[in-house]
Design a protein around this nucleic acid. Structure first.
Lengths: 251, 251
DNA sequence: TCGAATCATTCTAAATGTTGGAATTTTTGT
DNA sequence: ACAAAAATTCCAACATTTAGAATGATTCGA
């Protein structure tokens, strides 16, 4: 991806101006974003024309423009992914553990949402971060329910790197486990990725029944072992159903 | 001035996404800004990388990104230096009570500006702080004038937690009140959030007449009961109008 | 009031990223 | 399972960006 794009420069200018308390001079801007003044000047002029910046005619200082400020009202209005977040939050509160929603992206699992439990000491993975597919509950789940061709291609292209003593590094064994996951409808991670942390994941399906995401609870084995997680299966499945039925996945 | 600059294209994309209520597809975007899909695709990817857009991995729809939302927050708050502040200050002086301007952020109401009255003893809510939506004048007002879909989704996802004896905890009754608010054009909070404190709020509209913010007076019922607040409705409305017409919302 | 220093703006040719039709892949709807 | 729609990738022609240098404007101290 091109990182020298004028688009990137423009939004960084915008970000700097918006974050500053008071209007800024061109020289400030130029120093802050590390671009030559003529460059900043031109981009700022474009942003000004679009109403994203406002240049005070007297002081020549830049601040947020009218269009931009108006936009702010709208952008904030719909706090990202309200309903989905709420559904997950309810589940997290009930189990008192971390809940995350993930999808398959390329050869990895990406969190699209994550509700941290109130407990201290739990791993910090931000939404957007990625984890391996062969040693996580969500990963194995999504792999198990992926279309066969897709699954095979993926399995051939990943390396079964060991993360803990329990990480599965044997392809044949992984295959058997995937079959088992399809049979029982959920997957487990018994400290296969992070020592001391176990997970349990259930599928989230779209209208047509295809598995599009995984919903998992993850917690320190010490206070929340897999047996306990299993006892909450109905709650997890109900939550997954809620996400599916209401088609709240999208937004 | 070059008008075909990618910078211009980028900010127009951003503006369109921010103004839409729900996440938009690439095809929508392409049609809306009248640019070929590959072009939109590339620019959107850049904006996503910068956190200005968020592409849901499941639906591939674009919405405002995290960095952008954070920026909006700053941009709205830093308006406090300019004309907007003066307009609010005049009103506050006339009523001799606390005035605040608020917007809907997610499921809550956020103050973007607040002029404290000179009186002692009044609650200290800084700009940026959030209050519930179902038991405040601004909250009910913004809810009442929000687009229907947005309102319904919000109502479904909030908990009508009681704060005082007067807090509305009955959804049906709240709905009726919202209808009444739309009819009469203003909303009241009769000690529903804080015992002993009442508020009255009027809508602030944008150019197209959509309600984007709420302007409220809040005061101890003892010295400034709702009847008295109502007598100042013309002043509040004039002030809201001033903010709207002159488009001084920005700053 | 003057001049020096700083800041803003314009100019330019070379460099770079952009562009969008066409092809490809993926997803959706029937 | 199929057709239609949408998203994504490609790439060579092309338009914009780039930033040094020059110029004009403003600020500030003496």
């Amino acid at each position: 991806m091109i990182r020298n794009s004028p688009v990137v420069k423009a939004v960084r200018l915008l970000a700097y101006v918006a974050r500053e308390e008071t209007p800024v001079t061109l020289a400030d801007l130029s120093a802050a974003v590390k671009l030559p003044k003529p460059t900043v000047h031109r981009i700022a002029a474009l942003l000004e024309e679009e109403g994203f910046l406002y240049k005070d005619p007297l002081t020549r200082r830049y601040s947020a423009g009218k269009t931009f400020q108006e936009l702010c009202f709208y952008a904030l209005r719909s706090g990202a992914h309200g309903e989905r977040h709420l559904i997950l939050q309810r589940l997290s509160e009930k189990l008192a553990e971390t809940i995350n929603l993930a999808v398959l992206v390329g050869r990895e699992v990406m969190y699209i949402e994550r509700i941290e439990s109130a407990w201290p000491l739990n791993i910090n993975f931000q939404p957007g971060s990625r984890v391996p597919v062969h040693c996580t509950a969500n990963g194995k789940l999504l792999l198990a329910f992926a279309p066969r061709r897709h699954r095979e291609r993926l399995l051939n292209s990943i390396e079964l790197r060991p993360y803990t003593r329990n990480t599965m590094v044997d392809g044949a064994r992984l295959l058997r486990e995937l079959q088992e996951i399809r049979r029982q409808g959920y997957s487990e991670d018994n400290e296969e990725f992070l020592a001391g942390v176990c997970c349990l994941a259930v599928p989230v399906k779209d209208r047509r029944g295809r598995v599009v995401a995984g919903l998992a609870v993850s917690a320190p084995s010490a206070r929340f072992p897999l047996e306990k997680a299993r006892s909450y299966l109905p709650d997890l499945q109900a939550c997954a159903e809620e996400l599916s039925v209401q088609a709240k996945l999208g937004f």
